[in-house]
Nucleic acid binder design. Sequence first.
DNA 1: CATGAAAAGTTATTGGT
DNA 2: ACCAATAACTTTTCATG
Lengths: 173, 173
Amino acid sequence: MAGKIHLDNIDQKILSYLIKNARMPFLEIARECGISGAAIHQRVKKMEDAGIIDGSRLIVKPKALGYDVCAFVGVSLIQTSYYTEAVEVIKRIPEVVECHFVTGDYAVLLKIYCRDNDHLLDVLVNTVQKIPGVARTETLISLDQAFERQVYVKDKKTAKTSKKGTAAKEENE
Amino acid sequence: MAGKIHLDNIDQKILSYLIKNARMPFLEIARECGISGAAIHQRVKKMEDAGIIDGSRLIVKPKALGYDVCAFVGVSLIQTSYYTEAVEVIKRIPEVVECHFVTGDYAVLLKIYCRDNDHLLDVLVNTVQKIPGVARTETLISLDQAFERQVYVKDKKTAKTSKKGTAAKEENE
DNA sequence: CATGAAAAGTTATTGGT
DNA sequence: ACCAATAACTTTTCATG
C-alpha cells in the first residue's frame, strides 16, 4: 500500500534502532539522532502510514515455550492452482509460522515449530497432508538456527549525538 | 539460558499481546488481564531474565526498503565440520536474515533478501559460493510470502476484562 | 519538516500485605 | 505474587516557524 517513499538517513537510523528494540523510547532515539521527540513521532507515523513499518513483535524463544523442533516443509501440490485455497487452510495451522510460494521442486515452503518429533509427525500426517491439493511433503529439520534477524537497514553513523541542531541535514527529500 | 519456567495463563496472555504488538503499553495489558501494571512489569521482567523473551523487533516490509526478492538457499558443504566456521562468515552477509543447519540434501539453509535477481546472483556467486567449505547451492525463490508470524501462544479468553479483582486466579504456580 | 510546551499517559520503583 | 502510590519519563497533540 502506498507508493515509494524516500527514506533519508534519519528515517533509516530510526528503523535501525527499532528493528533491534521495538520498545526503544522515541525520546531516546531523538537524542541519538539529534532531533526532537515529536519529529521522531511524526516520522514513525509517516512510515507506518506508508506501510513501511508493519507493526512490531516481541520475540519469544520457541524452546522456552516447549517448541523444541523447527522444520522446513516443502509441499508439492497436485496443481499450482490449489495454492490460494491451500494457504487459507495453512493459515489456520498454529504450528506454521511462515508460508511461501516458491520456485523449484515444491510449490509451497513452510516453516513449522513443534514440541517434538511426534508432534511434527502428527502435524504432517494429520494436518498438512490432508489439505486439498497437497500431493506430498519433504521435511528438513533444523538442527540449529544460527540466527534470525530483520532485513538490513543502513545504520549510518553520520548523524551524531548532538545537543542542539547539528546533523539532520543529509538529504531530506 | 535458565531452565524451564512455568508460564501460567496470565503470562501466556501477556505474551500473546506483546507478540502481536511489542509496544502495547503494560498498563493496557494490565487492564485486559485484570491485574496491576506493576505485576505486568514484574512478570515481563521475569520472563526476560528467564530467557523466554528475547527482545522485540519492529517489522519492516522488505519491499518498502527496496528488497523485492526473497529466496531460500540450500547450501551444501564439502564437510559438515565446516559449519561453525561458515556461520561466522554468513553472519556478516547483510542480505541473509536466517541461517539454519538442516537435515537432508543440504547442510545449511539460508533465507535471503535482495533488491532484485541481479543482486541475488551477485550474493550467491560472489559471496556465498566463496565461503570456505561451500560446495554448491540451490536456490528457491519465494514468489509470495503468504504470512510470517511468531510461534503460537495460547491466547486464553479466560481472564476477562474486569474492573477490579476478578480473574487472575487460574493456576498460579 | 521541524520545534517547544503542555496534557495525558506510561514505566519503574518502593514499601507493604 | 500482588497492590497502591509515587516520581520520572514518554507519548501525543498543537500552534508556530
